[in-house]
Amino acid sequence: MPSRDRIFSRIRHNLGRGPLEGEAAQALKARIEGHAPNIVPKRTNIPHKEQVNLFQAKAEALAATVARISSFDDVPEALRDYLTAHNLATRIKMSPDKSLDSLPFDKTPMLEIKRGAAAPEDEVSLTPAFAGIAETGTLCMASSPETPSTLNFLPENHVVVIKASQITGTLEDSWERLRKTYGAGNLPRTVNFISGPSRTADIEQTLIMGAHGPRRLHILIVDDGPQD
C-alpha cells in the first residue's frame, strides 16, 4: 500500500471511523471557508490614532526604531538622516514597487538607489510594508514581483515605509486585508511578519542582535491623515 493510503487508513482506523463525508465534511469545509476568528485580545480596541501609537511603542520595545513623517515626499530625507546618524552606506536597494516610484530622491543626491531583489553585497534595503499590527508592533510584508522578500532578510539594515492607514489592530486584520487583495484561500508566495530586528540567545542565553537577518530595522510611518 502506498504510504499516503497507509497513513490515512491508520488515522481513520484509530479514530474509529471511515472518511468524513456528507454533513460532517461540509461542516469542516464551512469552518475553513468561514475562517472565524478565535479569542482576539482586546488590547487594540482603541481609536486608530492610538493604534498607531501602540504600534510604534511596541516596535520600539522590540529594538526597532521609528520615525514619523508627514508625506512620502519626506522619505528620502528621513532615510538620509537615518543612514548618516548610524554612519551607514548610502547605496540603497529599493523594492521595484510602484508605491515608491515617485519618491523625490533628487533632494538627496548622495543616496544611490538601485531597484530589484537583494544581492549579497546590499547593505541597506528600502521596502514598503503590506500592513502593520499594533497588537505586537509587527510588520506584515507580502511578496510579489515588485516586493521581493529577500530584501527583508539579506541586507544588514532594513528600512520600511508604512502609511499610518495601513496600521491596524490585530493579526486577524492582516488576514482580512490579504484576503481582500489576493482572494480567499490565496496568499502571496511569502508573507513575512517581522517583529523587530534579528537576534539570538544561543550563546549562554545572552541576547545578541543581528544573528542572520538585519541588525537594524527602521520604520518610517507616513502620517496620511486621520483615519477615525
Binding site: 511596541k58 497588537e135 529577500t150 502571496p188 511569502t190 517583529s195 537577518g213
Partner: peptide, 24 residues
Amino acid sequence: ATGQEMSVYTTFSTGPKRMEDIDG
C-alpha cells in the same frame, strides 16, 4: 517559549515562486 509576544520572524510560504517573481 521565550516570553516574547511574537518571535521576530513568522513566515508563511505558499507554493513555489510565482511566474513574475524575481526571487524565491
